[in-house]
Write a protein that binds this DNA or RNA. Sequence first.
DNA 1: CAGGTTATCTGACTAAAGTCAGATAATGTT
DNA 2: AACATTATCTGACTTTAGTCAGATAACCTG
Lengths: 302, 302
Amino acid sequence: MLTQEQRFRRFARAVTTELGALEESFLGRGRSLGAARVLNAVGRGITDVASIRAYLDLDSGLMSRLLRSLETEGLILTSADPGDARRRLVALSEAGAREFQAYEDLSDARARNFLVRSGRIDKLLGAIDLVATALIGERIDIREVDPRNAAARACLEHYYRELDDRFEDGFDVSLSRDPDVAKMAPPRGAFLVAMSDTLPIGCVALSGDGTGRAEVKRLWVDRSARGFGFGRLLMSAVEATARQRGIFLLRLDTNRALPEAVAFYRRAGWREIERFNDDPYAHFFFEKKVSDHLGSMSTTTE
Amino acid sequence: MLTQEQRFRRFARAVTTELGALEESFLGRGRSLGAARVLNAVGRGITDVASIRAYLDLDSGLMSRLLRSLETEGLILTSADPGDARRRLVALSEAGAREFQAYEDLSDARARNFLVRSGRIDKLLGAIDLVATALIGERIDIREVDPRNAAARACLEHYYRELDDRFEDGFDVSLSRDPDVAKMAPPRGAFLVAMSDTLPIGCVALSGDGTGRAEVKRLWVDRSARGFGFGRLLMSAVEATARQRGIFLLRLDTNRALPEAVAFYRRAGWREIERFNDDPYAHFFFEKKVSDHLGSMSTTTE
DNA sequence: CAGGTTATCTGACTAAAGTCAGATAATGTT
DNA sequence: AACATTATCTGACTTTAGTCAGATAACCTG
């Protein structure tokens, strides 16, 4: 039988062929891969020379020559940084933007081709998300965002869809105690999203009312990213955020159709308590003390 | 939300980084990637220059120079092909074998590192097999092998394990009508394995007794490879093989715990018939005519 | 055995990627 | 103002990969 290593190596060969073909298609546009990569970096919004150099790991000499060749092609415009004239800023010209878009289209076409040719797009997307998440691994970035932000909304949509799938009678947000957006934004609360490269793979909300107590809501981790400990990571992050906001006691509720969530909260040091709301979707109630005394930012209204 | 193309591109970036690091580690052994690749091809058993050239898609001049450099390093030995002195044969020297092993160890170490670091080896292996199978796609090779061969045995082990998982009371080969190996080998029968690169992803056996009738047994497709139509491919191949062996009528049985198999046989033109054996695991029985008259190789014992 | 074909080798080239040692000019520090 | 530091640029270099036109020797066909 094939060993696990051999299976990985078959995967590596298959992927190398596919990605090699993508690079080949880039060469078809008449400039070197190095130049194409720089153009791509600029197109993606990396605008100063030092950042591009760090992003692509390029020698300063090579970088300079690639910039010069893109400049004489008329694809980029460079200028001195007004704040520090040693630095140079790079921007796409109109022709450069068109050329950047052409590379984007090539990439998208190959991605599409790969996905469609299998005939099993959903299963394949699940698999590639899983592999990418495993590879990106610890390089995950938990950041606070506005709950109306695109990544946050994407997470929430996934979250609602999953509840709708798993609850016996489906899930309808409007029937639930939906915390309003203001409660999930500073200074009273927070909305945290876990980003793996460009993909939002999980979220959690802290819904506060300005007192030293708050609720944890909307904990979700993408199916393809489960088992890597991101749920725990999100919970630690939200507890830390709560402490910063001067919150000392957290509560949450959850549904009996999510036994792994109930087990997870128990393991993570949450204590089961009496029902504290009339949400029809809530069956289990927990609380956890996150700091010993009232934090510095707690208000007087408690 | 991220589009499907963006998800693929996140995957491509993650994988490129991982595989780039692997190539970097190859460079650490002090020779170019080209030379390392040739050494690897020789180590994997490709012994004549033309085949290596085809395998690695190398220009004849470049190939020759890489061979010369490996030869002066003392890693390979070349000799004229005794059958055709224009061809050259390549073999690893003792030092070459050690060096080849060093590259193998590097590859394995990186594969292991990738798998272990996730903490979810089985799920990850399933995902990479799925992606690799999708990428390799049509480039699948159905070949007849001896049923005692390693790939065949690997398939059968998976097959038995899966039946044991799915049947209500498990599965024990010794209780089943296990066709003996001679019936699954030429000239009476056949054992076909579907190879995707180096991975056996499916099998099917033709168990004959030298008459114009035979049984199809052991149809199996790996979980990660289902839905790509490989079952259908294997069945067409086994029917073609049956015709070659002079068989005109095929029969098979299957279990009620495998509804998708039953549906598959119905769709593929099989006709349900009466029970024709006393296998305790068999609940459904099918037959299919694969040629109109007795084939040329049919024996007189029918 | 003559003439064509084949497999490999050699030499002369190119393009791309990358390295390294200064040069230049702006900025920061004392 | 003098000196060190920083970001970028320039020129000279190397290695690798790859291309192409023959050369060479063995083989195949009639």
